[in-house]
Design a protein around this nucleic acid. Structure first.
Lengths: 195, 195
DNA sequence: TTGATAACTGAACAGGCATTCACTGCAAAG
DNA sequence: CTTTGCAGTGAATGCCTGTTCAGTTATCAA
């Protein structure tokens, strides 16, 4: 039988992911070498191939894992309530989730172009699933007369871009608490869409 | 005296910039080699060094040129009129300018981390000058009672993120004209800030 | 204690990298 | 028609790249 206790692979595997995530977010996928990632983990470059088929797959797994976790977390939001309440919940969720994972969010936007065609399509499909959640809320609210939207699809893009933009400037040690932050953005979204 | 007519440098120089811009936008700064850029122009790699000190400077010049052109164009907007009119002019300008220059906008966000510390600071200063223009409009409108803002600085970030986000999805051959686009976003901004 | 094997090393492979530079060809100035 | 010097070549420099793999180590099951 294989070893169980004392097996390093269950420790090293996540450490490879974490090192790759941090370094790629900081320097970019193409600028980071397998040797750099290995050094961060404390192994030789060859050892990384126990945990990934190749560099491309390592990137893809980071993005896929992030999108899957995001969708899982989204799934825990209540599907009931008024469209206005669901929109507020979505906005607060989006900001809270993204602000805690700046590296994942960053590379999920920045490194799409470094994915192979197949891998890109897979990530894009997950992203569309996420966006369609907001789209559905907006269309429900529109139909119920709570929202006044000229174009729900464009509003979806606009709201997501606005909310995700938080990551480019928010600093934990700045003057605003995370609650302040969510309140400010929610006010902007509410007024932009309210009938 | 040096040659004037027939000199190639006035042709090749801009072609180097254009090739670098296109390739970096498509593949990323670190993923593009000087040989690739040279091949796109139709020269050997060594010839590029007649037009740039090194690869880093080539990137910096692309970003600096973009930001300077952006600020120059911004400077042609009228400074008079109500804050509401000036905000509308800014929003329409921002969308129109950015939608026409997807490559420049893309690398200005994506490749900041590949700049040296000094170069990064220079680009950031230009970006802050641009943002401060919107910030001033919002504060004027707030003071005059036309806008109801909880935090002008955050609203600046939110509006710019929202407007710039257009570039991630808008396609020239899609169902929306550029006028439709500007109208839709302006409605969202107006309602988000209006008193 | 022995045998199995997961985890890892370290060297090797073939190729690409940015940058430099002696040199060439050529167009224009005088 | 000679001189000037710009624009570009192509080879060379030293280094880094992703990936593979035979061999080593350490820990477990039996």
């Amino acid at each position: 039988m294989a070893r169980k206790t004392g097996s390093h692979s269950e420790i090293t595997g996540p450490r490879v992911q974490a090192a790759a995530l941090r370094l790629i977010a900081q320097h970019g996928f193409a600028a980071v070498s397998m040797r750099q990632i290995a050094a961060e983990v404390g192994v030789q470059a060859g050892a990384l191939y126990n945990y990934t088929n190749d560099k491309q797959t390592l990137l893809f797994d980071l993005l896929r894992t992030h999108m899957e976790h995001l969708l899982n977390a989204l799934g825990t939001l209540p599907e009931t309530g008024t469209p206005m309440a669901r929109l507020e919940a979505f906005c607060r969720f989006h900001i809270a989730y993204h602000i805690e994972r700046p590296d994942e969010v960053f590379i999920s936007y920045m490194e799409l172009r470094n994915l192979s065609a197949d891998n890109f399509a897979a990530i894009e499909a997950l992203r569309r699933r996420y966006e369609s959640h907001l789209d559905a809320i907006l269309k429900d609210g529109q139909a119920a007369g709570h929202f006044a939207l000229d174009d729900a699809r464009v509003t979806t893009f606009a709201v997501i871009a606005m909310l995700t933009g938080v990551n480019t400037w928010y600093r934990e040690d700045g003057p605003l608490s995370k609650t302040d932050l969510a309140d400010l953005y929610w006010t902007l979204v509410r007024r932009a869409v309210a009938a």
